[in-house]
Amino acid sequence: MCTERKLTRLDRVFARLDREPERPAHIDVPRMTPHRIVLLAATLAFYGAIVWAVVITSWLVRLDWQVMFFRPYQQWAEIHAFVDYYVVLGQRGPTAVMVAAWLGWRSWRQHTLRPLLALGVSLLLLNITVGAAKLGMGRLGPHYATTIGSNEMGLGGDIFPSGHTANAVVTWGILAYLASTPRARRWLSALSAVTSLGVGLSTVYLGTHWLSDVLLGWAAGLLIMLALPWFEPLIARSESLIFDLRDRLRERRAGAVSVPTATPVGAPVLLKPRATPADDEVAAREATSAPRSPRAPVYLAPGPHTTRAERTPVTPVGSRRPPHTDRTTRGAAPAARPLAGG
């Protein structure tokens, strides 16, 4: 007998995803159109120009120092508390949790894992590209600057480009990337751009980043969002592999759930009442008076059998003793023995 397995939370999620097709027909996947390729090339050129301007200690580095000496957090001290909370919109942990919760609900409603997988791929690209640029250029931040007017490059820092700005572009831009309609995509793109620039300027206000860090971080995040359609085939294959793995696990669990039938717990047990001496006498009298039905021996094979009196006796032929050459039968004359001697 096969007992029903209790469904886990993950099983219920996959059951919900199986109700309808995994990818609804009304949701279009962004493609690498010529317009997007032109924007990607322009953003890449802007990225390279910012890096070159900082490396050669151009006017952009002088602007960084002027903004740092201006000390915005002292000029507008009344908004300091608000900026401290607003800059959290660019921190990787809180924003990733909030966006993942929203995209998880989208996955539930649209019956597909694409929103969560797209978020995972974009955050992975963000960590690889921005992290490599930070460690490769090694620029120090305003609070740790050593020489006035220098670009502070190659000194072991990790401030260039701004991780807060790039993270804000990616985490909020992924909502625009996964929008269902072109109108919603345009509005969400503008909102994510304003939010990410606001986060970057908040870091400049607090003195934790140079202005050029914010510009490069904005370009780094935009490059990831523009190049994300190239990873759509990888996202589709990953989704297919996850569902195939789910199906194999279900088949393996279904084959291991079969268990033998067991007595249900709590079944009533019938007990006989205790016999009295009078009942024992009545039972013994009925046992002696009732004729017993003949029973066949247990060791006999099934089939009709006769009683011993009805069987024909079988007498063995000949003697049962083994033959001996030096013995004679009883009553026969012994053979003459030769006389020995002379």
Rank of each mutant, 00 (worst) to 15 (best):
M1L: 09
R5F: 03
R16V: 11
E22P: 11
I27D: 01
P30I: 05
M32H: 00
A42N: 01
Y47A: 12
T57W: 01
L60M: 15
V61L: 03
Q66T: 12
R71S: 09
R71A: 12
Y73N: 13
I79D: 03
T95K: 01
V97S: 04
V99E: 00
S107C: 14
H111Y: 02
G120C: 07
L123S: 04
L126P: 07
V130I: 12
M137L: 15
H143A: 15
I148H: 09
I148C: 00
G149K: 06
E152C: 04
G156K: 01
G157N: 06
P161R: 07
H164I: 01
A166L: 06
A166C: 05
L178M: 02
A179H: 01
W187Q: 14
S192D: 05
S192V: 09
T195L: 15
T195S: 10
G198L: 03
V199I: 06
G207Q: 00
L211M: 07
S212H: 02
L223A: 07
M225I: 09
L228D: 02
W230R: 11
A236K: 08
R248W: 09
A262H: 08
T263M: 11
T263Q: 09
P264C: 08
P264W: 05
D279R: 12
R285Y: 05
S289M: 11
P291T: 07
R308D: 09
T312Q: 08
T315Q: 09
S319R: 09
H324D: 10
T329S: 11
G331T: 02
P338L: 10
